[in-house]
């Protein structure tokens, strides 16, 4: 038999695991059964290939279970199997052409960036649920997500693996500290990537732009909280943003006037972070003036003064 390609190897591994007895298969069983493993030179290279394959399977949704005799380490006695229930889709999971078009748009918004491959593979999988023709009415729209923060990849990996991470975080007041958190979810809010994470039992929001060090994965596993806990934390942020109101005065017919689509000179806006709101306003220079809160107006003034000082 010709040497197996990576796709053939992963497919064979999946089929072998699905056919495993209730107690699962040992690593040696798999090394004997999958042609690509059997034909490899063994040793470290084979172990690394197996580790990569386990990760690849999990990344595409194949729920590989590892049953260990040793509670702390995946040793030679570990047994591997795939939970049959992992292949069951919700009964009501059906998409109409418009929804499939929306999923395609959502997947394409990642373009070639991190998550792009996951999004594309999800789309392929969803299409296999039924030969539905995609609604092409959406083809003139091209949303694009931009995720260039160095921390994005390690955080996405840690969320998938449910492992805690450590990083240095600098708040808008300049105070910097080392944070060890359980990463739960990445969100894009008003153009800003936000990490929802649990730190000492409290669910908090971290702006990715304020993560000023590399993200280190501790590989310590944690149990994610329920979806209800995450939703509550998200709603708390919405409520917090709704309680922050900036009142600005805009110069008529200026760029800010058109940008904010004003019909009046005074506009009220909500914000989740005062420093970010200040940045948004500062971009328009003298086209607008902050009426309230005073702290925001002061922050903008101090910001411009800092710019003048550093470019004197």
């Amino acid at each position: 038999m010709a040497k197996q390609s990576p796709a053939e190897r992963l497919f064979t591994l999946t089929c072998c695991l699905l056919a495993s007895p209730v107690i699962g298969l040992s690593k040696q069983d798999l090394f004997d059964a999958v042609p690509a493993y059997r034909e490899s030179s063994g040793g470290d290279a084979l172990e690394k290939m197996f580790d990569r394959d386990k990760k690849a399977l999990r990344n595409v949704g194949v729920q590989l279970e590892v049953r260990n005799n040793d509670a702390f380490e995946e040793g030679e006695s570990a047994r591997y199997l795939i939970s049959r229930g992992a292949f069951v889709w919700p009964a009501e999971f059906e998409l109409n052409p418009k929804q499939l078009g929306l999923v395609e748009l959502a997947a394409r918004s990642w373009n070639t960036q991190i998550f792009g491959s996951a999004a594309r593979s999800s789309l392929t999988r969803l299409k296999s649920r039924g030969m539905v023709e995609i609604d092409r009415q959406l083809q003139h729209i091209s949303p694009r997500l931009v995720a260039k923060h160095e921390s994005f990849g390690p955080l996405a990996d840690a969320i998938s693996a449910s492992t805690t991470v450590v990083f240095e975080y600098r708040k808008s007041d300049g105070i910097q500290s080392v944070r060890e958190v359980e990463p739960l979810k990445l969100r894009l809010i008003e153009g800003e990537w936000v990490l929802l994470a649990r730190e000492r039992e409290a669910v908090k929001n971290f702006l990715l732009r304020r993560i000023v060090s590399k993200v280190r994965d501790t590989e310590a596993l944690f149990s994610p909280p329920s979806e209800a806990v995450i939703t509550r934390a998200e709603q708390d942020l919405v409520a917090y943003a709704a309680s922050n109101v900036a009142v600005i005065e805009i110069v008529p017919d200026s760029e800010a006037w058109w940008h904010f689509g004003s019909e009046r000179e005074q506009v009220e806006l909500n914000y989740m972070d005062e420093a970010l709101m200040a940045e948004d306003f500062m971009e328009f220079g003298a086209d607008l003036k902050v009426i309230s809160p005073k702290s925001l107006a002061d922050r903008i003034r101090a910001g411009f003064e800092a710019v003048i000082a550093s470019h004197a």
């Binding site: 959502a106 998550f115 999004a119 999988r125 969100r187």
Partner: peptide, 19 residues
């Protein structure tokens, strides 16, 4: 095929939130 992984679901969910 198996149901989607958490990472796959997240990628689509974030894209849909963005939409």
């Amino acid at each position: 095929p198996p149901s989607l992984s958490r990472r796959q679901l997240s990628s689509i969910a974030i894209g849909l939130d963005y939409l």
